[in-house]
């Protein structure tokens, strides 16, 4: 039984693992056209049209290429946001868990405090703010950020917003794990042997808590992808013509009855990617937690 779970996991993990190099390195080769290349004579062509394997959208842009490039957007959102949240959350959580109870208390109070914040609203507000400020002839620090953002097709601020949203849960988990590991005998032993705090953290605590944290982060990835799609849907995501799946869907969902492929293809891509990450996360959790294994 365990094997079946592993196989399912492996297949779907593979999918996302294949998607990775595709999205980041190989894709520009796979995409046959540039994502912003328009052609009015060929607008709204169905899949299977010669030259446009998945058809074209309302401006005659190749859907295959746009979807492939969209993979890049979604996956970079997923990985950057996940990395940011993992690094920040883990650091914060481990420091809190490893420090004296007084420091721990203060740090966790701050986390509790943020936990009460309506983060989605803040993301919307922040995105509105970034989008407005970044274009009003910004100078100085904001100007530099704006340059970066522009170079990334409006993705940079999405990363920041998502990262800000998600480190809190990670910090809580990391702290809890650290606290429980801290009491174990081998830490006592290491301490008795005169190991420095830094060594204990890096040699003994981190390796022991990183598993559950990574699993949790993997499970959060579909959420990031969907949040990006949501932001793009309400016009606060990436800048057109950068092809994000969310943007592609929001541009075309009104055309669902007439040109269904324009909406369903990025929709399917979105669904399958989240699906793959969900299976990966579930599988990792099942694999890492011996108690969940089939008997």
């Amino acid at each position: 039984m365990f094997v079946i779970v592993m196989i399912i996991m492996a297949i779907f993990a593979d999918n996302s693992i294949i998607a990775l190099p595709l999205g980041l390195e190989v894709k520009p080769l796979i995409a046959t056209k540039h994502y912003a290349q328009t052609s009015f004579r060929n607008r709204d062509k169905p899949p299977g049209t010669p030259g446009f394997p998945l058809g074209t959208d309302y401006l005659g842009r190749d859907l295959w290429s746009r979807t492939v490039y969209g993979t890049r957007v979604s996956l970079s959102v997923a990985f950057v946001a996940a990395t940011v949240s993992l690094v920040v959350g883990l650091t914060y959580g481990v420091i809190a868990g490893f420090s004296s109870p007084a420091v721990d208390n203060i740090m966790m109070r701050f986390v509790d405090f943020l936990y009460g914040f309506p983060l989605l609203i803040f993301i919307i507000l922040l995105q509105a703010y970034f989008k407005a400020v970044s274009r009003a002839g910004a100078t100085g620090f904001m100007g530099i950020l704006t340059q970066i953002d522009r170079a990334m097709g409006g993705l940079f601020f999405v990363f920041i917003a998502l990262g800000l949203l998600n480190w809190i849960g990670m910090a809580r988990l990391a702290r809890g794990q650290t606290l429980s590991v801290k009491q174990r005998e081998y830490i006592e032993a290491a301490r008795a042997l005169g190991a420095s705090n830094l060594r204990i953290v890096f040699r003994h605590i981190l390796p022991n808590i990183i598993g559950p944290c990574v699993v949790q982060e993997t499970l959060a990835i579909p959420g990031y992808i969907l949040t990006e799609a949501f932001l793009s849907f309400i016009g606060l995501g990436v800048t057109p013509p950068t092809p994000s799946w969310g943007l592609m869907i929001s541009d075309t969902y009104q055309a669902l009855r007439v040109y269904p492929w324009e909406c369903l293809i990025p929709g399917a891509a979105l669904t399958f990617t989240t699906l793959a990450f969900n299976f990966l996360g579930d599988g990792l959790r099942d694999a890492l937690d011996p108690r969940l294994r089939g008997s």
């Binding site: 709204d44 309302y58 075309t252 009104q254 055309a255 009855r257 007439v258 040109y259 324009e262």
Partner: peptide, 8 residues
């Protein structure tokens, strides 16, 4: 009429 429906 929504834009995409116009052709139809």
């Amino acid at each position: 009429v929504p834009l995409p429906e116009l052709d139809n």
